[in-house]
Computed example of a mutant assay.
Amino acid sequence: MRALADFVMRGRLQATFAVVIAAALPLLFWVSAAAGSLVVLRRGLHDALGIVAWALLPTLLWWHFGEPRPLLVLFGTLVLALVLRASVSWTRVLLASVLLGVLYGVIIDAVFGETVKRNAAELLELMPQMLGEAYQQMSADEKARVGNLLTPVLTGLMAALLQLLSLLSLLLGRYWQALLYNPGGFAREFRAVRLPAPIAVVLLVGIFLLPGLGIELAMLTPLCSVPLAFAGVALLHGLVAQQRLGRFWLVGLYVSLLLFMQLVYPLLVVLAVVDSLFDFRGRAARDGASGPTDGEG
């Protein structure tokens, strides 16, 4: 990875080559977005525009063949990189990612709305098998509400996936930047990510309360959960580093996230909200500073 980052930063020609080739190759569009974000973070938008403009050619071609992710993730990652470069604040980046997710949702609904509706209809037919007796015990109104919620929720899930890919691409670009110019800086920066309590509460409202105000607002549930889950992962990284625990714990986290997504993901969201209120890392640092020396420090 360091070799690729070094190649990208060697010059405009090398950066353009890396961004365009990665965008053209199947399933490597996130590398192109990360490389573009690295250029934005290090050199600014003016230098990055001439490089990223060439990447539009393969991403637009992918869009023509029905694959919107390369173009959307490239655009989203660059927007988030600009926010990070201007603010040096992951909190603002995470908030901007929610707005970006809403934009993704609007684009998905406008361009691929009919496909999403067909998928929702197919999923609705499978509901009796998936939910079993619980679905049979629902009233007609409840079943109708579930059917109405499927389309915006599916749209929100697709948008949240693009939102997450944009954040991860930016994360990789920031990691490359630190690797080249500030070794160790990325780890410290990521471990310190913590959402202020008012922001965490607003995101929680977006997850649970806003969908009750309108069916279309159900799209916000997955979008608002992404920043909280991101902050939850940062919290665990920070605690592992503070307590000097082995990497085994982080490996276990990501394996559990892959295998038990439905259980671990909500837990990360809850941890992030509680941490925004009680600041676990700050408390651990204060306890560590006063406790272990027994007054002999």
Rank of each mutant, 00 (worst) to 15 (best):
W90Y: 11
G44M: 09
I108E: 15
A86F: 00
V88F: 10
L57T: 14
R85C: 00
V98Y: 07
Q136V: 12
G297S: 12
R69S: 14
D275T: 02
P128T: 10
A5E: 04
L103C: 08
M1P: 07
A241F: 12
W90S: 05
P198L: 01
R10I: 00
L100T: 08
A134W: 10
S276R: 04
G156E: 08
A53P: 01
D287V: 05
V79N: 04
Q14V: 08
A48M: 06
L60P: 03
P198G: 06
V88N: 15
L95R: 11
G288C: 02
M219E: 12
I207N: 06
L172Q: 15
N182R: 14
A159N: 03
G238N: 01
S89W: 06
I21L: 15
A3D: 14
P68I: 11
G76T: 05
W90D: 02
L103Q: 05
P227R: 03
G156L: 07
F65A: 12
R69A: 15
A197I: 07
L171W: 13
M9D: 05
R92N: 06
L49E: 08
P211D: 01
E133P: 01
S276N: 02
W62P: 13
V116T: 15
L95Q: 08
L204V: 09
A178Y: 02
V146P: 01
A178Q: 04
V240Q: 13
A160D: 06
A289I: 06
Y104R: 03
E189F: 05
L99R: 06
L253F: 00
E114H: 01
R194M: 00
V39F: 13
R194G: 02
P70T: 12
G291N: 03
L213Q: 06
A229M: 08
T77E: 08
P128S: 13
Q242G: 04
G173S: 08
C224I: 04
P292R: 14
P26H: 10
A144T: 14
A23R: 06
R10T: 14
L180T: 09
L165V: 03
P68G: 09
S166L: 02
Q177I: 04
E114A: 13
Y104V: 07
V73Y: 04
F186V: 07
V269H: 10
F75K: 04
F75S: 06
V40N: 11
V193H: 02
L267D: 00
V201W: 05
L162F: 13
S290R: 12
V233G: 01
R244D: 14
R247W: 09
E67K: 14
A35Y: 12
R118S: 13
P68M: 12
V73I: 11
L204H: 02
R69I: 01
T91C: 07
L259A: 13
G44P: 02
T221E: 13
F208I: 07
G173R: 07
P26E: 09
I207E: 10
A187G: 10
L74I: 11
